[in-house]
């Protein structure tokens, strides 16, 4: 094993697959010589050239639709949308076209594309560059939705997304780009199948179901509780669609106490779906307390660093929520 960053892991996944399959093309704003707004694609333009690493105009709608059209005609495009907030500009092509073209054309089309985009707050980029909009895309049948929390997961899940024959929205966490973690050597190729949650920490007293940046934060809370003799299980959902319901349900049955944590605004957030998955199942009869949700506050992400830090779940808030369950 070696240690690389989350951004490097994503770069490796793309580059390695592009070397194997020349039908993979990569398009987005400033992904070429500039290397991407977060430096994720550094070196790719130099390696693959202008034919396969395409700097686009600032036109999120057509970039997304162009990828969908290319995917329907034999290519396997990757699109980078510079900030996940800008999927709002691409939504028509993503939700009405890419997601539905297989179903609405009676199975004639396949749309094997990956839309990569960084989400989340914490960079002082304020209201329009910090949102966590995963619930928007989870609500559209035909899309798959992935949010990795470690370099290992990022690489393996991105490879699986690139090999998938459906449109996959791959939401990266901008605050994790520089985080490091262990991944196998380059020659030890691996993928992580979509639809498999990962138990990042096993425990028997409380289950925290989470994803993305909140995984690490939840693990830190779990370690602190361990010293009190409270054993927390942390489940990283990893793939929001398709969801590994079984993993959540089994854990809920084991611990009887569940907290759902995510950074996105709580109202209408995917946490509602995660909580319902448990409550709707026979795990309900094993619960010792109501399933608790902890999402971001229902406000836009503010600029001031003190305010910004407080609108998403903090260690303190997660800790307090766990205590309510005990």
């Amino acid at each position: 094993m070696r240690t690389i960053t989350y951004a490097q892991a994503i770069n490796e996944a793309m580059s390695e697959e592009m070397r194997k399959d020349e039908n993979i093309v990569f398009m987005g704003e400033d992904i070429g010589v500039y290397g991407g707004a977060f430096g994720v694609s550094r070196g790719m333009f130099e390696e693959f050239g202008d034919d396969r690493v395409k700097d686009t105009p600032i036109s999120e709608l057509v970039i997304t639709g162009c990828a969908a059209g290319a995917a329907m005609t034999g290519l396997r495009p990757i699109v980078e949308i510079m900030f996940s907030d800008f999927i709002t500009l691409a939504m028509e092509q993503l939700a009405n076209q890419a997601a539905k073209n297989r179903f609405q054309f009676g199975g004639q089309a396949a749309v094997p594309m990956v839309l990569r985009t960084p989400g989340g707050s914490g960079t002082g980029a304020a209201e329009q560059h910090s949102q966590s909009l995963e619930a928007w895309v989870c609500h559209v049948p035909g899309l798959k939705v992935v949010i990795p929390s470690t370099p290992y997961d990022a690489k393996g899940l991105l490879k699986a997304s690139m090999l998938d024959n459906n449109p996959v929205v791959f939401i990266e966490q901008k605050l994790l780009y520089r985080s490091k973690g262990e991944v196998p050597e380059v020659e030890d190729d691996y993928i992580i199948p979509l639809g498999k949650a990962d138990i990042k920490r096993e425990g028997k007293d409380v289950t925290i179901v989470t994803y993305g940046r909140m995984v690490q934060r939840s693990l830190e809370v779990a370690e602190k509780f361990a010293s009190e003799g409270v054993d927390i299980e942390v489940i990283d959902v990893r793939t929001l669609v398709p969801l590994d319901k079984e993993c959540l349900i089994e854990s809920a049955k084991k611990t009887g106490k569940v907290l759902v944590v995510h950074e996105a605004c709580q109202t209408g957030g995917y946490g509602g779906e995660l909580a319902s998955t448990i409550v709707d199942s026979d795990a309900f009869f094993y619960l010792d307390a109501p399933v608790k949700r902890l999402g971001g506050l229902d406000v836009p992400i503010p600029y001031n660093p003190n305010l910004e830090a407080l609108v998403v779940p903090t260690e303190e808030k997660i800790t307090a929520a766990v205590r309510e369950l005990l």
């Binding site: 093309v25 639709g65 162009c66 059209g69 005609t73």
Partner: peptide, 24 residues
């Protein structure tokens, strides 16, 4: 490659189909 219920919905898709043709 399909009729479209969204006014203008086919325009971006067309660029992608043409991109494939040019790429190949």
């Amino acid at each position: 490659l399909g009729a479209n219920g969204v006014v203008g919905g086919g325009l971006p898709i067309a660029t992608g189909a043409a991109f494939s043709q040019k790429y190949k």
